[in-house]
């Protein structure tokens, strides 16, 4: 099976799974197939979905960014703190985005320039950026943002869609073009599948990796701000532990943890599968905890079953010849 066929097989599998879940949910609950429910379903974890897009790029590039959830928290706290100190809201938002970009530059410096493993650097980032967020807010919760900001997070902007959902779709299209339709996207795959070969072919590996980490942190900061707008208040421990959910979604989307393989269509499908699954289970009164079990199991089975199938296939073929 060629890589392309395998990839297509994955998406077909996810699509079939998605259809099955949607159909099952539709039969199960009459409320499921309503526009309101679908919007709700998207809205409830839209921030994780946004971060999953850049995480997919980072992992395809052969690296990992564990600091995203802390950057989300950091950006939200920077925004809340500067607002609390009397800065106008737009300035606070800009500063929060700048803080995110700065965190990304910091990651990029240690990974691309010094050459430390991204797992170590972003693990330190996970602890450190969260720490900075805590310094700013201590144990306070800051709310009382201007109305337009809260409205942005909570009210529909165009039709039934909120700003965060629109931003998700825009970013999805943008990153799909970057990854699958631009020279930079090809470089991400090249660096991810064989970093030595990339270096010897004159690819500026450091630059590609830097762009990935700055982009990842910047988008995480944006997601953190959107999360703050949706919740209406900010705390130091906001978005804690999100990184594992985000990575789970990306891996379920068929992106290889070893880099160089995967695409955004798969990630989009996996996001839909997870959302529909959670929503359906929620409607069926299954607790969030059991939902985690099911998604964890799905993550393992999604790789295990094709592997076992291939083993059986090979065995059967071997007997034939």
């Amino acid at each position: 099976m060629s890589a392309l066929e395998r990839l297509k097989g994955w998406e077909a599998m996810m699509l079939a799974l998605l259809c099955a879940i949607v159909a099952l949910n539709g039969v199960w609950s009459p409320y499921f197939l309503s526009v309101g429910n679908f919007v709700n379903l998207f809205q409830l974890s839209i921030e994780k979905s946004i971060v999953a897009l850049t995480m997919a790029l980072v992992i395809i590039g052969g690296e990992i960014d564990l600091s995203v959830a802390s950057v989300m928290g950091l950006a939200a706290c920077v925004m809340a703190w500067t607002f609390h100190e009397g800065a106008p809201m737009p300035l606070a938002v800009l500063l929060a985005l700048a803080a995110g970009a700065l965190a990304g530059l910091n990651n990029a410096f240690w990974i691309a320039k010094v050459g430390l493993p991204s797992l170590a650097v972003t693990l330190a980032g996970l602890i450190g950026y969260r720490g900075v967020a805590r310094i700013l807010l201590e144990d306070r919760a800051i709310g009382g943002f201007p109305d337009w900001f809260n409205t942005l997070g909570q009210q529909a902007l165009i039709g039934p869609l909120t700003a965060a959902i629109l931003i998700f779709f825009l970013l999805f299209v943008f990153f799909a073009i970057v990854l699958h339709g631009s020279a930079f996207g090809r470089l991400v795959y090249v660096v991810g599948s064989n970093v030595q070969a990339a270096r010897y072919s004159g690819v500026r590996v450091g630059l590609v990796k830097s762009a990935l980490f700055v982009g990842s942190a910047f988008v995480a900061a944006l997601a953190g701000i959107l999360y703050a707008a949706r919740l209406g208040s900010v705390r130091g421990d906001m978005a804690e532990g999100f990184e594992l959910d985000v990575i789970t979604a990306v891996l379920l989307g068929g992106v290889s943890i070893f880099g160089g393989k995967g695409n955004l269509v798969g990630v989009g499908l996996s996001l839909l599968v997870i959302l529909n699954l959670r929503n359906g289970m929620g409607l069926a009164n299954i607790t969030g905890n059991t939902q985690n079990d099911v998604i964890g199991g799905l993550l393992i089975l999604s790789v295990l079953i094709p592997n076992m199938w291939q083993d059986l296939h090979n065995k059967w073929k071997g007997r034939e010849t």
Partner: peptide, 15 residues
Amino acid sequence: GRVPAVVVTLGTLAI
């Protein structure tokens, strides 16, 4: 099962 360890243990972490 030849499933990458990160995938497996991320799953069992939740399970």
